[in-house]
Design a protein around this nucleic acid. Structure first.
Lengths: 224, 224
DNA sequence: ATATTGCAAATCGGATCCAATATGCGATCA
DNA sequence: TGATCGCATATTGGATCCGATTTGCAATAT
């Protein structure tokens, strides 16, 4: 009998997939600034492909809400108003607590250890550029036992939308100290198997971050 | 000064947009069956265009979760497992009540009248093929004053995903009588300005429909 | 007879080419 | 001098063409 480490090549990502992932990463990480225009030619050049896969990647990202495009004028990184940012956080504050709630009830020791690891990594990371990744990895670990793939997908989309602002919140406001404390508390509740408390703490965590971020952006954008 | 009813032509939909909308409509309405393959050539022929805009439309629909595509094998209408359908309804049952809650607090007389109209149209419609549209229009009316565009978008996506199953539920089970009653109750709560009751009724409405539908599908799909 | 192999049609992903639109700069005119 | 018009350039949207992969069927070997 044949026994190989066969990797399904056909399932391999197409060029459009790779470009979509790379662009999404860049947008979420904030490497592409708010409102920056995305030239098809330029992106195609970066990946040594024609503009066709680039256009499909942009079409996907537009459906995800990370990019807005205007006919014959091109695509730009979607920029969110304060209201849109606030609403996205309120949405997260609605959904994520329910996800942790279910997750805690089914959480295994391995997941708990994983979450603990990401929590520690987040707390001790010196490079601000890596904070957001640890943060997200921590929360993802807390959600992964929920058995709710659609909820996770929707939450992930919401996080992608506000990722670069969240990053700013962690780095530019003193959100780190607070986040560390709150992460510890959430983790403790999960370890204790107290789903309700984990849910409530998650909700407060999200709304608190939102408040800090909105205040910061209001000052920065010089608006009223 | 110039004074014309100027319509922004540049905003006009591209071919890819039109095709995406048409395909989405067809999928949601159930005209394209579960798991049916979508040939690029064929669709391109229907719209008298090349395959390029078709591919962009499919890319968008894949991002929305209405289509799944496999490399070199083509795209098919995404078919949902019972678990996925149930989860989507639970997601709706989480989000939509919060949307009505906010909406009721700000609901104007015009919106109430609109909802009443759709409710009556739903209740008196003879053609089963039109039930789903009236149903959706009714709920959309109830949500539109919430001032929560992102929530509405997410809810709309979830409804698109289960639209064709919901249609089956209304037509093939005796969900109509129940839906009529529950719509009346929700509408009454909204008219009375009782946001909490409207929210709770909405939640029960969604979960009840889910139960009927899942039972029906379990029998139909011959599963355990 | 059955399993394997080779080939041909169908289909997809991507490249290249052309048309449509936007944008910026210079010429023109009051 | 300043506003407007017109054209050149840049960029996008779509069509056509080409190579890659799948799939079904027929030929063949055991």
């Amino acid at each position: 009998m044949l026994n190989l480490k066969a990797t399904d090549i056909g399932r391999g990502a197409s060029a459009a997939d790779l470009i979509r992932d790379a662009l999404r990463e860049a947008i979420v990480q904030g490497e592409l600034r708010d409102g920056e225009t995305l030239r098809q030619d330029q992106i195609a050049g970066l990946f040594n492909v024609s503009r066709i896969p680039v256009r499909e990647a942009l079409a996907r990202l537009e459906a995800e809400g990370l990019v807005t495009s205007h006919r014959y004028k091109g695509a730009v990184v979607a920029s969110l108003s304060l209201e849109e940012i606030a609403e996205t956080f309120e949405f997260r504050a609605l959904v994520e607590p329910e996800v942790v709630r279910r997750s805690v009830a089914r959480m295994g020791a391995d997941t708990l250890a994983l979450a603990r690891g990401h929590c520690a990594a987040f707390a001790t990371e010196a490079d601000p550029g890596a904070w957001a990744q640890h943060n997200r990895a921590f929360h993802s670990a807390l959600y992964r036992d929920a058995g709710r793939p659609y909820h996770l997908r929707v939450v992930s989309d919401a996080l992608d939308k506000v990722g670069r602002y969240l990053r700013a919140q962690l780095v530019l406001t003193d959100g780190m100290a607070r986040a560390r404390r709150e992460h510890d508390a959430i983790l403790e509740a999960c370890a204790a198997g107290d789903a309700d408390r984990a849910a409530e703490l998650t909700r407060a965590h999200i709304l608190g971050a939102s408040e800090l971020l909105i205040d910061f952006l209001r000052r920065e954008r010089g608006g009223g």
